[in-house]
Design a protein around this nucleic acid. Structure first.
Lengths: 191, 191
DNA sequence: GTCTATAACGCGATAGAC
DNA sequence: GTCTATCGCGTTATAGAC
């Protein structure tokens, strides 16, 4: 099996265009043109424009889900879990920048069933994140602060990391991996 | 002069729909239907769909610009300035939730000149914010941390506040005004 | 697997009656 | 100021030749 077959190539190219202009602003002609073929030829590989979007969004969403499901039950401190989650966001931001941007900007353009699947994964993720944070506060590993505001602030920063990352060079990524957990968790860790 | 003339009503309704579905996913027929009229009738009040978007985005952008231009030169501590900026974001989030969402999601669909105006305001805002923060670090009012990561984290939280606010009741807004500055600036303020 | 041709439809915007 | 009618164009997707 090839590493990138034609369908994968289409989806990668679509993600790049969706990120730049938004799902609705990218036509099948735009996408085909970027691949050097005609729009009609795309339909030999994909079922519809909607299918492309759902493959992009759900693939990343599942990656987040898998990771937090693995971290969540571990017997380590809440701080360690939060650090692992932050590292994972950085990894995905680096490896799947375009996909992540699509997830953030265009998830609401998913059709009925795909949309429900996405929203369920998103809610479950946020719920596990909340429990980890609250657990840390209960055990006095973390300062007692308004948890909802803290959750929002951390998650929104992690979600939009791709906006910042794409402006920076790869050297600064090392700085990011080192300093972002501090920035997000400092003033929160009991000392 | 009436408080809300027809044009204002159109723009407010458009902002609500753009927020929910995105600029490109809302047709002039959708907008007209929401107002109980036909699409053609809209054009007695507005020049184009693009004009609606630019009025929404540039109005909010100008409000942010005006505020930071007023705060920036004042002779108070950097912390006071940052607190004032955070309060302003909360105010605008509450008062112009839909407009703010449009600015965040659809600014890239502005046409040539409007887009340039927006980007200039956005850059100027970020630059003044950066200078305030760096000034606070130089004067040891704030901890010396990687400034770009701090700037990104604070601004992205403030920009996306509307996502969080719209889920919460108005009572919790008082909590937000009290706790958000702490959450964003704690671990940053020297003590 | 890509092509040309085209179906079926929705889009933004305008003209002109009332 | 709102309406009906319509123009010209772009959209997703399909049929069938090669």
């Amino acid at each position: 099996m090839k590493v990138t077959d034609r369908k994968t190539e289409i989806i990668l190219t679509a993600a790049k265009l969706f990120r730049k202009k938004g799902y609705n602003a990218v036509s099948m002609r735009d996408l085909a043109s970027e691949l050097g073929i005609k729009a009609a030829s795309l339909y030999n590989h994909i079922k519809s424009k909607q299918e492309i979007l759902s493959e992009i969004v759900l693939q990343v969403a599942e990656r987040f889900t898998t990771h937090i499901d693995e971290i969540y039950p571990q017997e380590v401190s809440s701080i360690k879990k939060l650090e692992a989650i932050i590292q994972n966001h950085i990894e995905i931001t680096i490896q799947q920048t375009d996909f992540l941007a699509c997830l953030n900007n265009d998830w609401m353009h998913l059709a009925e069933e795909n949309l429900q699947d996405y929203l369920k994964m998103r809610n479950d993720y946020e719920e596990k994140f909340r429990k980890i944070l609250l657990d840390g506060m209960v055990k006095n590993e973390l300062e007692n602060r308004n948890p909802e505001i803290v959750i929002f602030s951390i998650l929104t920063t992690l979600r939009t990391l791709y906006l910042w990352y794409s402006k920076k060079s790869s050297i600064e990524v090392e700085v990011l991996k080192k300093d972002l957990p501090k920035t997000l968790l400092n003033g929160l860790i009991q000392n």
